[in-house]
């Protein structure tokens, strides 16, 4: 597990963040003065209606976008001040993304998809193969390593997506509606897996979801509405 530097015990610190999108002459305020702290090794569910800014917040925490105002500090590092290139390197080292539609490369086998983040490291081919085997074993897909995404079920594809997200052993997993495209059974299996990653492997997980059934698996749930956060009572 990688070393994690935290500030006041929080791995993720979002302070006074505004996010404004410009559409023509119009300014659209998505987030306004938002603050959020996520302790290390916490499984947090982020809920809210469509257009409430959940994915925008996830993008800011994942270094895919920058706030218009405010600070985003992950593991003690102000990522809102990093350049595009620095952010790319930071993402490769510290964050794993799990997407609703899996975002796998259809032309690559499961193991090649999982290997992608490792291409950005200095690992040898044999070392990369070891890491891929381990990640696929964690998600229970060792037997499907050579399969292409089109031959896998939705649940299996999402497992490959999770294996790709954890193969570099990142501190933080950001999941955007990870069960949104799956049936209940497959969704439950994915949630089981995420819980296991949180409890057994110590991953800090931020999961955006519409589904109360999914958020119930998280240790903490916050609601985002009209750019403001509202904490759900502790479980």
């Amino acid at each position: 597990m990688s070393e994690t530097k935290t500030t006041n015990g929080a791995l993720v610190q979002v302070e006074g963040v505004d996010k404004i999108f410009h559409r023509g002459a119009e300014d659209i305020h998505i987030l306004t003065g938002l603050s959020l702290q996520v302790p290390d090794r916490q499984f947090l569910a982020l809920m809210g209606p469509s257009g409430s800014g959940k994915s925008t917040l996830l993008n800011l925490i994942g270094g895919l976008d920058r706030p218009t105002q405010g600070t985003v500090t992950i593991g003690g590092e102000r990522i809102d001040q990093l350049s595009d290139r620095q952010l790319a390197h930071w993402r490769a080292r510290h964050v794993g993304f799990v997407f609703q539609l899996y975002n796998l490369m259809p032309v690559l086998s499961a193991e090649r998809n999982v290997e992608l983040p490792l291409l950005l490291t200095h690992l040898s081919k044999a070392e990369r193969a070891d890491h891929v085997r381990t990640a696929l074993a964690v998600v229970g897909l060792s037997h499907r390593a050579k399969h292409y995404p089109r031959t896998l079920s939705g649940g299996e594809q999402q497992r490959v997506g999770i294996a790709r997200a954890i193969v570099t052993d990142p501190t933080l997993l950001l999941c955007d509606e990870p069960t949104g495209d799956l049936d209940r059974k497959a969704g439950d299996e994915i949630l089981d897996l995420l819980q296991a990653l949180n409890r057994e492997h110590g991953k800090t997980i931020l999961m955006v979801t519409h589904d109360p059934h999914a958020s119930a698996r998280a240790a903490r749930t916050v609601h985002l509405d009209k750019g403001q956060l509202k904490e759900e009572p502790a479980k």
């Binding site: 994942g62 895919l64 595009d84 290139r85 790319a88 390197h89 993402r91 490769a92 080292r93 794993g96 993304f97 997407f99 539609l101 975002n103 796998l104 490369m105 992608l116 983040p117 950005l120 790709r164 997200a165």
Partner: peptide, 16 residues
């Protein structure tokens, strides 16, 4: 486009 976005999300730089 989406795949390229995913590559960038997992750490591929613009140059790569």
């Amino acid at each position: 486009t989406g795949e390229l976005g995913a590559l960038k999300a997992i750490g591929f730089t613009n140059g790569q």
